[in-house]
Amino acid sequence: MKIRFSAFLSALAIASTLMAGVSFASDVALTSVGQSPDAMMVKVVLKSLKIVPDYEALMKAEELSGQKVLIAVVGGSSKGLGAAGIDKDQEVARSKALLEKAKADNMKILVMHVGGPGRRGALSDLFISAAVPFADALIIVDKDNTDMDGLFSKLVEGKSIEILSADNVRGTKEPLESVLSSWGVI
């Protein structure tokens, strides 16, 4: 009886560990670069693909824990930076450290800009310039108007990266699914 009870406890422990793995670790890490709420919109799109990412707007490099893909959603928000209690330079430093760690861990990096031309300007451009050079794939909403000055195109020049475009945030579902499928996450 004692042995049976120990076996039951062991089985329970193994099951709990497995379940914990399923429940809490995701293949996809999601963060904001610039603290706009646009990353939350991407989280909603991922939900429609039945992906629950590890989402943290202020994710730090040491918080990456075995995910396969890092999605960095770029867009500056002074309200968001204020809410996080950091300035733009601290945000650039955090983002670069996170992206460098993801590269070092051989993670795939998907950079997304979903705010359209309204999320351009000096503040957003700072974050775009910091994040896009790390991208293995790039998705932009309303590319023709958002990349009107060619900033994105210039940042990926010389790399074999196609800029994928969508009409609106909800429309990013298709390129997102395609990119994540090609990386074996879906």
């Binding site: 709420p37 919109m41 968001g80 705010g115």
Partner: peptide, 8 residues
């Protein structure tokens, strides 16, 4: 446009 409520 969506904006977060600043905590401070």
């Amino acid at each position: 446009r969506l904006e977060p409520s600043p905590v401070n």
